[in-house]
Design a protein around this nucleic acid. Structure first.
Lengths: 338, 338
DNA sequence: GTGAAAGCGCTAACAG
DNA sequence: CTGTTAGCGCTTTCAC
């Protein structure tokens, strides 16, 4: 706490030794005598010496910073993942730099450019809804910058990735509705270009098939935006007979569906059961509480960061794909008396 | 797109001129001949040259990175502020590095240390609920690192800051409840060490006084955590007579209060009206919708970043305190037929 | 109008 | 065991 921005030179000067000796002493190099080490370390402590990471970066190329790109930070799920990434990164001496793509392809490309310019040691990304082109990812690989996809992965880029078992989650949700006696289950699905959307549809269909339910196209409706639900849900409820259950691609859509069907005069869960996906803060605060699939975002973040650090240490190892388990959380929107 | 990490040297070598000339040409130095400039710039474009920010930092000391410390990224309000900061920072060639304090003093101090070590050019912070000590902020001032507080400011550190008019927001909320005919309005308040809590209490009291309502201590209850509301709200509703309105320190507490009083058999808004604070996604999804005070988090972020960049440009200017306007948003939790 | 050289803080190869 | 030197990419005096 004595000086600001103490450098190795300062210490060397004070101790009348050379900077390199100080440098070595600080990293406990075997060549250095114990006395010198003690001297150096004591002064370093006293003066509160901190290595300048910028100089380190310039030197070795490692900035000890990881870049993270998410569609939108305000979503509970992404915030949790970020927390996981941050915690694991910090524990290992890394910082993170966060960019948002705002679900836009352009902004995603920009974000990556920004992070590359900042010389991050690797980039963790969950791709935007509007990303179809994958050239920017291939650029990264060409530049030899480690890349880890989480949750919203790209089907066309080989890389490390961590996902949840979306299919299994959707299967559990649908099966739960079936076991609760629901006969006509509509799935409000996500953007078709995202693999998570496809996987969730797949799980939904798998459950239906298992119980010899018919699978009809009209029961799989793309609907994951606030405005969309506003008119899609009422139009679906006008069918004869109306569905008695919704499995929604996220909690947000589910909560909105919940409100809309209630407003239309249906009772939840008696007339209509609803299951969401995420298990965010939201799901506890609707009325009734929202049954949902827990995505364990924090764990996903930890795992993604772990993959990244592994990759930075060993750039040759084969790509890995980690799958985080999902969990069915039952609340009042799908079962009575909860 | 031709090479990776092109340096000034590469360009110099190719053009058979010296690096310094290239450097000057790139920044349009008057000494350099137009032809040379054109030559250099063309090649720079062609090779997609990007200055290495790390080298720049080492040189001049500016890392073009701002540090941001928030209690928790998962809160809608903080996410919005971050978006605002990020947008304004990016527009001006800055990146941001985000740390979470998790509402802990220790983690807050650590985060700041991390950011300082990373040589950020300034730190924007919203302090944690548990921060009482302000030494770490004074350290920053000693180190001459610009500091901007937003939302949760420190009363003991002189600095630039941007807040919302908490008092006014609370006043509007309370007045709204009074005008709706509510007689007994309980305020569920935040941690007493935060200035925002005090200001909201102040606004609440001001409204009560204006309408000759009595102000009683038992109607101001510290309650801003999920677990607390669980028992505090029921105990309050057992009073005779029970209150007919709640003004809550945030949307989260408000939504929970809403659910709890409903579960206790009261009707919202007939028996009990509720107003929250934030206007997050949440407030649209409760049943009924939550009346609340919009905090304009994004605007606050823009303003905070603006203050920071001003400060970086001119370290001598007097400290400024900006106040963001709040706005009453009325939904069904406080008014019938919405 | 352009080049050579030094230096930002640190490390590592090379010498003693 | 310790010091000297060069260099990471860039800017900036100081020369010419």
């Amino acid at each position: 706490m004595n000086k600001d921005n103490v450098t190795i030179k300062d210490i060397a000067r004070e101790l009348q030794i050379s900077p390199s000796t100080v440098s070595r002493a600080l990293k406990d190099h075997p060549d250095i005598s114990p006395e010198t080490k003690k001297l150096v370390n004591n002064l370093a402590d006293k003066w509160n010496y901190r290595p300048n990471p910028i100089a380190l970066s310039l030197k070795g190329g490692a900035s000890k910073t990881l870049g993270v790109v998410v569609p939108e930070i305000i979503h509970y799920f992404f915030s949790s993942v970020i927390s996981g990434i941050e915690d694991h990164a910090n524990e290992n001496g890394y910082n993170i730099m966060i960019c948002q793509s705002n679900e836009e392809y352009e902004k995603e490309v920009n974000s990556i450019q920004t992070l590359v310019n900042s010389r991050v040691d690797g980039i963790l990304i969950s791709i935007s809804k509007l990303t179809r082109n994958t050239e920017h990812f291939h650029e990264l690989k060409k530049k030899n910058i480690p890349l880890v996809f989480f949750d919203r992965i790209s089907g066309e880029v080989e890389s490390d990735m961590v996902i949840i078992d979306d299919s299994e989650g959707a299967y559990m949700a649908t099966k739960h509705l079936i076991l609760e006696g629901r006969k006509k289950i509509v799935h409000l699905s996500g953007p078709p270009n995202l693999i998570i959307s496809k996987d969730r549809i797949e799980g939904y269909i798998r459950a239906l098939n298992e119980f010899q339910y018919g699978v009809t196209e009209e029961n799989i409706v793309k609907c994951d935006q606030v405005q969309e639900a506003e008119w899609i849900v009422p139009s679906i409820m006008k069918r004869t007979p109306p569905p008695d259950a919704f499995f929604c691609v996220n909690d947000f859509t589910a909560a909105q569906t919940l409100n809309i069907v209630k407003k239309l005069g249906f009772h939840v869960p008696d007339d209509v059961a609803i299951v969401g996906f995420t298990n965010g803060q939201l799901s506890r605060l609707t009325d009734p509480g929202l049954s949902t699939i827990d995505q364990h975002g924090y764990d996903m973040g930890i795992e993604a960061a772990r993959l990244m650090l592994d990759r930075i240490r060993d750039r040759k190892r084969p790509y890995q794909k980690r799958v985080i388990k999902t969990e069915l959380v039952i609340r009042g929107s799908s079962v009575k008396d909860r």
